[in-house]
Structures are given as C-alpha cells and as structure tokens.
Design a protein around this nucleic acid. Structure first.
Length: 549
RNA sequence: GCGCCAGUAGCUCAAUCGGAUAGAGCAGCAGCCUUCUAAGCUGCGGGCUGGGGGUUCGAUUCCCUCCUGGCGCACCA
C-alpha cells in the first residue's frame, strides 16, 4: 500500500475533475456513517449539481462510468441516496494494510504531514508559588501528548515550561515563608496581606529550619525575605518538576522569566514597538497600541513606576522562541488567562510574525466528582486538591486517560471514584485489557510451540470480524495526523476504544490458535498488527500497555 | 454590560473543519464462561441536538436572536 485509501480516491476524483474541467475544490472524501454504504464515500456529485445544472444522480453516474480505477483495490462502486458515490474496497486492500503495519511496526501511524515544522509546545507554566493543581494536570497530559503527536507527524517539537520566577508574587511567597519560619522560633512576624496561606508554606518553613537551623532569624526582614524567596522558589520549582516527572511529563526546557529580565530582553520589544510607532506614553506609563490589532483596548507595557508588566515579559519570551528558530508556537493556558490571548496575539501580529504561527488554547477547568458530588475547592480555605494527590489516588494511567478523553477547551467532570475502579466501568482498562489479551494469545501460541512462519497468507483473513479489525487498523495514521492538526488528542482515546471493541468482537467469534495451521499463521499476524497499533497509540498517550492483567 | 467557551440519550461524551437513518461508554433490563483472559461478548429500550428564525439540494455543524451554565474582563502574575 503506497497511499491511504482516502488519498487514493481523492487523487482519482481530482484527476477526473480536471479532465472534465470541473472545480477540483468540490472533491471531498469521507467515511460513510453506516458501514453498509461502503468504506468511503464522496458527496461530490451533489456539490456539482448547481454549477453543472444537472441532477446529482446523473452526475454521479457519469463519474462512476468514466472513473479509471484499480479493480484489484476497489471491489464495488455504488450510487446511493441523493447522489452519494460509495466505494467498497476489496479484502486484498485491507490485507495489504496489515502487511504494511507488520513492516512498519513501531513507526506505523507516523507521517510527514508536519515535516518542516519546528514547534514550541508550552504548557502548564504555573506560578511557582503553590503546588500544581488539577487543571495543571490536565494541561500536562494534553501538552505532553500533543508534542508526541507533532513528532509523529514528522515535526520537531519541544516541550517548554515558563517559570514565573520574577515579580511581586514570588516575593510574596518568600515573605509568607518567612513569617511561618519565624513563628517556628516563637517570633511573631506579620503575615503578608496577600500572602499564601496553604499548608505547603508551613511545610516549607519546617524544611528550611531543618536544613538551615536558625540562620535566617537574626537577619533583617528584607534580607531574610530575599534569601527565603530564593530558597522557597528553588524548592517549589523542584517539587513541580518532580510532580510532572511522576506524571511522565519530561520537559526539554525550563525557561526562567528572571533570565529575560537579567538580559534586559524587554528592551528589544520596546525598541521594536517604538520603531513601528506602536507605543506611547500616557499618565507616566508606556502603552502598546494593541487595539489596532484586535484587542479591546491598549495595554500597559511599563507601569507608572517604571516596572515592566508581566505582559511585556511574555512578549519578550515569545519573541525569544521565534528567535530560537521555532516557526509554530502553541501555548496551553489556564482559564484565568483567558483575557490575555487577544493582547498576545496582537503583539505577535504587530511584531510581524506570520498569522496563526502563535496559537493559544485554554485548558478549561476540571470539576472533581467524589461520591457523585462536586468537590468544592477554594484557594482561600486551602482545600485545593493538588495534582500529586489526584495522581497518587487514581494512578498515572487512569488520570492521563481521563484528561485525554475530552476536548481540551471544554470544562470537564473528573469522576474520581470511576477513575479508581478496576472494573469494566473504567474505560482505561478496556483498552489495556485488549492489549493484555493480545499478548496472552501470542504467549499462548508460543507455549504451544507455534512459531511465526516465514511465509503466510493474509488473504485468509476474510470474515467480517477480521475485515472490521483491519479497517480500524487502517484508520490509525489518519487519526494521528488529524489529532495533531486540530490539537485534539481525544481522537486517540476514541480510536483506541473502537479498535479495542473491534478486536474483542473478533476474539469472541474466532479462535486464533486452531487446528488450521495456515489460518493460525494469518490470524497471529492480525493479532500482531493489533498489538502494534494498540501499543503505538498508548505510547503516544504515554499510557502503559500491560502484557498481563 | 462586554468577550470567549459550551448546551446532543438518565449520566459522561462523540459525530472526521455542510452530508445519508445523530453514535459510543456507563447506568437499566435479558442472555453468554469445559476453549487463546468474562476487566470480555450478544440483544433490548432510550433523542423536537436549549428555544425561535435564516442561508441551501442537505444544518448538531454556518449566520442572526433569545434562554441557561462556566470562565474572563488590573499599571496582578
């Protein structure tokens, strides 16, 4: 098989259109909703009806009569309904897909649709002033998988984390810790007004006392605040890294906001804006004319006191990404950063970067359900369920799978009880079970002394259940490339569910290892193909593929 | 008030960037283990796709409007 079936049909139809002088754009090929209609279908005849001023079915008949196609590949072409042209592929075609899978192995599903792209995938990037929360966990799994998907389409992808280690918030962390630290020595130091109240602050203070004793007690407040800020920061970042590592998310780069400040990189942005006359002074602050680029109003770059805003730093950071050679930037932000999308897009446009080369997706909130009730969470009350707690409670595989099941920009419910269940109700086990079952069959064959013969005949795979599995296997490359293209990892979990289902059906109806040696050989290859695709898909999701359950 | 996202089966979600009779899982009911894993399989019921207009051969999908929910509207990060 050289081309996917969809591409093959698309090519055939396009050629025909060109020959007839018809608009090529009208050609679309998709899968029919019902399998009984065939494997692929095109509504092209209906699209042409208006321009050609002919009945759709008449056009369809003309197309079918003149279409030059490979009779070995396509078994039947039929016109149905208002003018759909339905194609049914021959078993030989589906069998050739399996041959391709066996040959490609781990690389089956990979493509070149993203070749030449250098993608920067920035995700989570939470403030280092508190533990990672549930939304961070959702963003972590999605960003990680998107990067995998990009790589699978031939693009280069870098996972990047922006550390917000500068500014007022971080100082507040240090002073919060300082107050708790002093309290450990019986000294009452006022707690900062907008300080952080979580228990982790007290834990930090205790840890620092254990490591450094009373070293900071005698220091002046500012001195102590500064030193504890640095130490608290290091520990918070380290904790975040550990949490993410445990979740199987490994970043290529942790980028420090402070390093931008140290390098005075904001100045480049200010210069660029000044040269284009896109900034102005007003009320002692420096403003960017973002309203000229689709934002609701202009935004401040330098505050009245001369300090840069977070916005300015973020522009400099993204400028840096382009400078490092990336030609596509994706950011996953939390719901609280909603309003910043327009101003950042405005800034990137103003700086002349190609439209669409910078894209933000909001990872929407997660409602935790326990016992059917939404778990109320409040930052103030400090009863936030941290990412670590969730992952420890439900496990990495289940947590990742649950986050990846849903579209990323819609709020989702996370049912903790369901995720923990080791029963059929839990979707993650369904697909893992299919993989374990596949491995068990292969092990069983081996135990019976059946070795994989050099020659085998995939042409023996002809039952509806076998063809159904083959058809599903053939969808995998397309699923991967579309999931990458539309930033929709949930396509993979849906695919896995369907593939597992089609395999379970097959398993139920047919024995793999049987008296019929030739059929056994062919079916073992089918099972092997299923194993490859299940494993490849799970690997893209970074979810384990157990050999036994 | 403005902006963004959403509203689909009892519940959680799909529907391949306008296509055919809107599909899965779970929950409910009824069945299937002497066999390579029953964490599985088979069957049954279940819907005015939030309401109303419009665009066209055709709308869950696009446009307008209203209703409901979530989030966001700082010289904070």
């Amino acid at each position: 098989m050289i081309l996917s079936a969809e591409n093959y049909l698309h090519g055939l139809l396009t050629t025909l259109m060109q020959k007839n002088g018809w608009p090529v754009e009208a050609v679309t090929v998709g899968r029919p909703k019902q399998e009984s209609f065939g494997d692929y279908a095109t509504p092209v005849a209906m699209s042409l009806a208006k321009t050609l001023k002919k009945a759709p079915r008449a056009i369809a008949e003309e197309i079918v009569a003149t279409l030059d196609y490979d009779r070995q590949l396509i078994a039947a072409i039929q016109i149905d309904g208002p003018g759909f042209i339905n194609f049914r592929f021959a078993p030989g075609y589906w069998q050739s897909v399996l041959a391709e899978i066996l040959q490609a192995g781990e690389s089956y599903g990979h493509s070149h649709s993203g070749a030449g792209k250098k993608i920067n995938m920035e995700f989570v990037s939470a403030n280092p002033t508190g533990p990672l929360n549930i939304v961070s966990a959702r963003a972590a799994s999605i960003g990680d998988v998107l990067a995998n998907l990009f790589c699978a389409t031939g693009a280069e992808a870098t996972r990047e984390y922006y550390i917000n280690d500068a500014g007022q918030r971080v100082r507040m962390l240090g002073y919060s810790v300082s107050s708790r630290y002093m309290a450990l020595f019986g000294i009452d130091e006022p707690f900062p007004e907008d300080g952080y109240h979580g228990d982790y602050i007290k834990d930090l203070a205790v840890a620092l006392r254990e490591e450094f004793g009373d070293r900071f007690v005698k220091l002046a407040l500012d001195e102590r605040g500064e030193q504890l800020t640095q130490l608290a920061l290091e520990r918070m970042i380290r904790a975040q890294k550990e949490t993410l590592e445990k979740f199987r998310v490994h970043y290529d780069l942790w980028f420090s906001e402070q390093s931008l400040l140290d390098g005075n990189r904001q100045q480049e942005v200010l210069t660029a804006f000044a040269q284009k006359n896109l900034s102005y002074r007003q009320e002692e602050a420096l403003w960017f004319r973002s309203s000229q680029f689709g934002d609701e109003e202009d935004r401040v770059l330098l505050k009245r006191d001369g300090e840069p805003t977070y916005f300015l730093g973020d522009i400099a950071y993204h400028m840096d990404k382009y400078r490092r050679g990336f030609n596509q930037l994706y950011d996953l932000w939390g719901p609280d950063h909603h309003s910043h999308i327009k101003r950042m897009e405005a800034a990137m446009t103003a700086l002349g970067y190609p439209p669409g080369s910078f894209q933000v997706r909001i990872i929407q909130q997660v409602n935790l359900l326990r016992g059917g009730e939404v778990v109320k969470m409040s930052k103030r009350a400090g009863n936030i369920i941290a990412m670590t707690e969730l992952v420890e409670e439900v496990g990495v595989d289940a947590a990742r799978y649950f986050f990846l099941m849903r579209k990323l920009d819609t709020p989702m419910d996370f049912d903790i009880d369901l995720a923990k269940k080791q029963t059929e109700e839990n979707p993650v086990y369904y697909v893992q079970y299919a993989h374990a079952r596949v491995c068990n069959i292969l092990a069983h064959a081996q135990a019976k002394g059946i070795t994989l013969a050099e020659t085998y005949d995939l042409g023996l795979l002809q039952t509806p259940e076998e063809i159904a599995v083959l058809r599903k296997l053939a969808e995998f490359p397309e699923t991967v490339s579309k999931a990458a293209q539309f930033l929709e990892p949930h396509r993979l979990t849906i695919f896995l569910q369907e593939l597992a289902a089609s395999f379970h059906h097959f398993y139920h109806d047919h024995r793999v290892v049987s008296e019929d040696a030739a059929l056994t050989q062919a079916r073992l290859r089918l099972v092997e193909g299923v194993r490859h695709v299940l494993a490849n898909a799970l690997r893209l999701l970074n979810i384990s593929a157990p050999e036994k359950m």
